[in-house]
Amino acid sequence: MKGKFVTHEQVFTWMERERGLVVITERAQKKYHHLLPSHLITVKTAKELFFSPWEAVYRYTLQGKTWVIEEKVEHSSFPSFLVLLPCEAKAILEVTDVNFMTEDTPDLGYARRRRGVTLIIVGCERIEQTCFCSLVGCSPFWRHRESVFLFPWKGHFYLEDGEEKLSLSPFEDPQKAQAVETFFAETICTLPLPLPANFPEKLYAHFDDPLWQKMAWHCVNCGACTYLCPTCYCFDLSVDGKLRGLTLHTWDSCMFPKFTLHASSHNPRPTGKERVRQRVMHKFSYFPLRNKYYGCVGCGVCREICPVNWDIKEVVEGMVRQVER
């Protein structure tokens, strides 16, 4: 039996003590503000900690007649612990890490901030109406061997992997731990089934489906969903400044026409249809075809914030019906 237990008090005190080193996501804070210290540093999304909305890669300066390039290296004492929900953790571990932390060509900015940060996953007691994590291989109790897992259980926290990583002294209660495991297993059985086997391949075969046109109609092509998505990692490199300036690494979005616009003014994704299709395909076909995991964790944030109720779950379910016809 892997899981042990700690008291609310223990977790609370630990977080108070490590305060400057602990960051919590807004969604985790909202869910567990009654159990955790209220004034932890919060971030809107987990990804922005590692994949900054913007950062300078290097500075260029014209000195006399030569250009001098100085790499920007951040030396910040960065938080060591990130408290987040299972879907947010899955997004980091199985999507953004996979993209940025490749061995041959690591994205150094991301890697520097990411290394040495321990993820503390707090499982979900309650499932929101926008959640659909069970469709994409996630669950309210999704755990990962490299991360700590906490789950509120009858006045205590169920804890996995926290003994060493957080130096907490948990107590054992095999019977209670068994009850937790059973609860997890039973709850998962009640959740919607995962997407069909080989959905990425099947969806890819429906690239030219006329349904895309219909589904894209009311999307306004803003970047809200991509920017607040925990997995969306597309970025741009741009310059800021003439004779001296910075080369910037900034968030970018496949929803913007400029994202793929050629200098010749040709655009391979000229309308909303192509861009919406790219967003869905990238998450549900291209990314899993390359990296085995879905590029969506089913957190439902995009469904919640979309100004026109463009709903990725609905679209994916529509495509499931289409591919299974």
């Binding site: 306004v220 092509n221 803003c222 970047g223 968030w251």
Partner: peptide, 10 residues
């Protein structure tokens, strides 16, 4: 502001 341009596009 994260400049997602949801305001502009809406």
């Amino acid at each position: 502001c994260i400049r997602c341009y949801a305001c502009r596009n809406s």
